[in-house]
Write a protein that binds this DNA or RNA. Sequence first.
DNA 1: TTAAAGGATCGTCAAGCTAG
DNA 2: CTAGCTTGACGATCCTTTAA
Length: 263
Amino acid sequence: MEGMVEENGTVDPLAPSPDPPLSIASSVQSVIQPNQQSVIQTAANLQPMLSKGNVILVGKPNSVIQTTQGSLQALQVVEAQSDDSLSEDESPKKRRDLLTRRPSYRKILNDLGGGEIAEGKVEQTSSEADSELSSHSIPYHTVIPAGAIQISSGDGGPGIHTLTMTNSTAGGAIVQYAQGGQEFFVPVVAQSGGLSSPGGEDQARKREMRLLKNREAARECRRKKKEYIKCLENRVAVLENQNKALIDELKSLKELYCQQKTD
DNA sequence: TTAAAGGATCGTCAAGCTAG
DNA sequence: CTAGCTTGACGATCCTTTAA
């Protein structure tokens, strides 16, 4: 690929999601938007690529972007760290942590600003996520204490129309959800405290509750992850378009220059 | 048609993070 | 400090694709 910024680097997913592809006129001004906190990850030896107009200086941490307007934009350069760079005597656990731990999607998308993932379990911002949810029929349910009935209104979740409590007993109940033509059931355990029970039973109930919550949390987490990945894919597409436009612009300017030279 | 391979999804555990 | 939330990892299961 003969791209400029992307040739040797990857665009950081944390960068705010871009506006629609820049017009040529504006893209000539700056590859990196002044108000965007972009991070460009590059190969080690990427040389300055433009001699005039925009200069992108990379290759060393804490580099700076200098624009024609004379304004300086701090650039955080993330040095690619391969697995090899981790010391060998690092314990497997620590090593694993170093490799895997990353900011939460909520944090990332909060940083993104516009691309915030819906907070809470029943909000949804992206229509794609909507379709995904419907196509996978992910049960968007809410844990409620036994004995209580929660009616979900329109904004309470995508397509949850009716809720009915069945089989309500002292120990718990089955909550029945109807979503479109589908129905699904969720066992709900009575919240501890209201019932006197032997310790073991209480423990087991607590565990059930914890597992249920974690199950839902995992679902939610996976949904966020998918949405986040879609965000990234969209961003890649936009940046590729920008890149293409810039290449075309460069080409036409070159042609113009050559033409004028021969005249 | 069927078995194998590979991918997707799920539930669970564990550890980090955060709000109160 | 603690309870609850979030998320990577892992194993199990299901689903789809592909070759025989």
